[in-house]
C-alpha cells in the first residue's frame, strides 16, 4: 500500500460480497469465471483490482454495479442486497449509488460535455438550475468548465475521460467503479486521471474500485487485490 495512513480514515463496511460465483454454461460445459469470492469494501477505500485477462475482473465489477447477475452468492451495498433486486429496482439503485467509468469513455457523441455529465441527473427530480449547478461543479472538479459546450469529438482522450469521471460523480454516488479507466490513455493523460481519482478519494472521501492492468496505476490506490484463476486475494 502506498498510502497506509489513509486507511485510518476509512469507516464502516460499505460493500459485502459473500460466496459470489459466476458460471457460464455453454451446452454441457460450464465456464467457471470465479467461485467463492468474498470481499468487504469499507467506506472511503480506494482499491485497485488486477489480474490476467479473462480472470473475471470486469465480471466482478459488473455484478457490483448491478449490471450483471451472479450465479450464486450475495452482494450487499450499504445495507441493501442488490443481488435480490429486479431489473427495474436495480436500474434505479444504479442511478443513485453507482458512478461508472469506462475504458473507452463512452460519452454520447451527440451531446456536449455538459449534457453528457447531466445525463444521470435527468433521472432525478432536480430542477434545471440545480442540474446546471451540479454539472458545473462536477466539470470544475475535473478541470473542464471551459470545455462544457464542446462535443466529445472536439476533446482529447484524456479530456473525454475526465468528462466521463464528471459524469460518474455528478450524482454523488455511493461507489465509483472504473473498468481500466486509464487503459486507453497515454502515460501523461493516465496520470491526470489517476490524480483525479486520488483526489476524489482523499478530498471527497469517495469509495473507489478500479480495475487496471497497470501496476503503477494500482500503486495509487490504498490497496491492490488480485484476481487469478477464480480466486480473489487481497
Amino acid at each position: 500500500m502506498s498510502h497506509p495512513s489513509k486507511a485510518s480514515t476509512n469507516g464502516k463496511v460499505l460493500v459485502e460480497i459473500r460466496d459470489l460465483a459466476k458460471v457460464y454454461r455453454r451446452g454441457g460445459e460450464a465456464i467457471r469465471v470465479f467461485e467463492n469470492v468474498n470481499l468487504e469494501i469499507r467506506q472511503g477505500e480506494f482499491l485497485a483490482l488486477m489480474g490476467p485477462s479473462g480472470s473475471g475482473k470486469s465480471t466482478l465489477l459488473n455484478i457490483l454495479a448491478g449490471l450483471d447477475t451472479p450465479t450464486s452468492g450475495s452482494v450487499v451495498v450499504d445495507g441493501q442486497e442488490i443481488t435480490r433486486m429486479n431489473g427495474k429496482r436495480l436500474a434505479a439503485w444504479r442511478s443513485n449509488h453507482i458512478g461508472f467509468i469506462f475504458q473507452f469513455y463512452n460519452l454520447l457523441p451527440v451531446l456536449t460535455a455538459a449534457q453528457n455529465v447531466e445525463l444521470p441527473l435527468l433521472l432525478t427530480s432536480l430542477s434545471k438550475k440545480q442540474r446546471r449547478e451540479h454539472v458545473m461543479t462536477a466539470l470544475g472538479i475535473v478541470g473542464l468548465t471551459d470545455r462544457s459546450e464542446h462535443f466529445p469529438g472536439q476533446l482529447s482522450g484524456g479530456q473525454q475521460q475526465r468528462v466521463g469521471i464528471a459524469r460518474a460523480v455528478v450524482s454523488d454516488p455511493t461507489i465509483i467503479l472504473g473498468d481500466e479507466p486509464t487503459g486507453d490513455l497515454d502515460a501523461a493523460s493516465g496520470k491526470e486521471i489517476l490524480d483525479l481519482l486520488e483526489r476524489l478519494s482523499t478530498e471527497f472521501g469517495k469509495t473507489i474500485l478500479m480495475v487496471t492492468h497497470d501496476a503503477h496505476a494500482a500503486e495509487r490506490a490504498q490497496a491492490t487485490m488480485h484476481m487469478d484463476k477464480g480466486v480473489l486475494s487481497r
Binding site: L67, A91, A92, I98, L119
Partner: peptide
C-alpha cells in the same frame, strides 16, 4: 447499441 448500454449503466430503466 453501445450508447444505449451506457444509458442503462447510468440507471436509465428499460421503460425509459
Amino acid at each position: 447499441i453501445g450508447e444505449i448500454a451506457v444509458l442503462k449503466t447510468l440507471g436509465f430503466g428499460n421503460g425509459t
